[in-house]
């Protein structure tokens, strides 16, 4: 029983990280209709930037802020200087993000080398929380809480603000949004930068546990894609539900039948797609 509860909590921890990463991926798809292959690179860059800044300043907070801001700036530059040239042409845009994924991967290798590392734990959260017989690392609970807060903020922004209404209008019908006075290019740039920032933030949050290593960018991408496909591309609610589903399934799958871990990960996706090709909350 304790084992199951611990696995359940571990699954929710994975779900929290996945949500931070897949949330940005799904928003970018919703607004720009592109599958952003470089999303995993933003996640990776976040971890590396935080690592460098923390090593220099000894401050987790500064490292996190630097990672989020710098990666957001990189995302904005990628969108403004490159993707913008191929506006409304998803295939060239996707190929371009793929190129950037390779460039970032090699750049990271050149700058930081290939040695694995982990980010330090915040001192306050280094211990464990104990209730009855269940012992669970405090930091993992903290990450779950942070993801929940981020999810709530995104939801409020999306559903209850003017910016959110403009965002949804752009997702629903970009042409009509433009004709209604919305600067769609600005929205795209903003969403792309915000998505990159979220991925970087997810990387930093997971940093003390998953750390940084060469190839981490493409390790995570398939999981994030499974989340987005299950939840429905473009849907924030879908990203949340998909993250929880994938987080739990992946954890229990690896714990119970480790030799089938890829099967247990992709089988639910296939089933969802067979029943509802647009994903749980996606649109046709």
């Amino acid at each position: 029983m304790i084992y199951i509860i611990t696995q359940f909590l571990n699954g929710l921890f994975s779900a929290a990280l996945l949500f931070l990463i897949a949330g940005g991926l799904t928003l970018v798809f919703g607004v720009m209709r592109i599958v952003n292959i470089a999303h995993g690179s933003f996640y990776m860059l976040g971890v590396y930037v935080a690592y460098t800044v923390i090593a220099r300043t000894d401050s987790l907070l500064l490292g996190t802020i630097a990672a989020v801001l710098l990666v957001a700036a990189v995302g904005l530059a990628v969108e403004r200087l490159f993707l913008r040239r191929f506006a409304s042409r998803p295939l060239p845009q996707m190929m371009m993000t793929m190129g950037f994924a390779l460039v970032f991967r090699d750049a990271a290798f050149m700058i930081w080398g290939g040695d694995p590392f982990t980010l330090p734990y915040p001192a306050l959260l280094a211990g464990s929380v104990e209730t009855r017989d269940i012992v669970f690392p405090a930091y993992r609970l903290f990450v779950m809480l942070v993801a929940a807060v981020v999810g709530l903020l995104l939801w409020v922004l999306n559903e209850h603000t003017l910016i959110g209404a403009k965002l949804r209008a752009t997702v629903d019908d970009p042409e009509m949004a433009a004709a209604t006075g919305i600067n769609v290019a600005l929205v795209s740039g903003g969403v792309f930068a915000a998505g990159a920032a979220l991925a970087a933030f997810g990387g930093v949050m997971g940093g003390p546990i998953l750390g940084g290593y060469a190839g981490m960018d493409l390790d995570l991408l398939p999981l994030a894609f499974v989340v987005v496909i299950i939840g429905g591309m473009g849907s924030l609610k879908g990203a949340l539900v998909g993250s929880i589903a994938v987080g739990l399934i992946d954890n229990f799958g690896k714990a119970l039948v480790p030799e089938l871990s890829y099967f247990t990960l992709f089988a639910p996706m296939v089933i969802v797609l067979a029943i509802k090709p647009t994903g749980l909350y996606g649109r046709g």
Partner: peptide
């Protein structure tokens, strides 16, 4: 070309 997810007010 109504935005499907926006309310009338939005």
């Amino acid at each position: 070309r109504i935005f499907r997810s926006l309310t009338v007010e939005e």
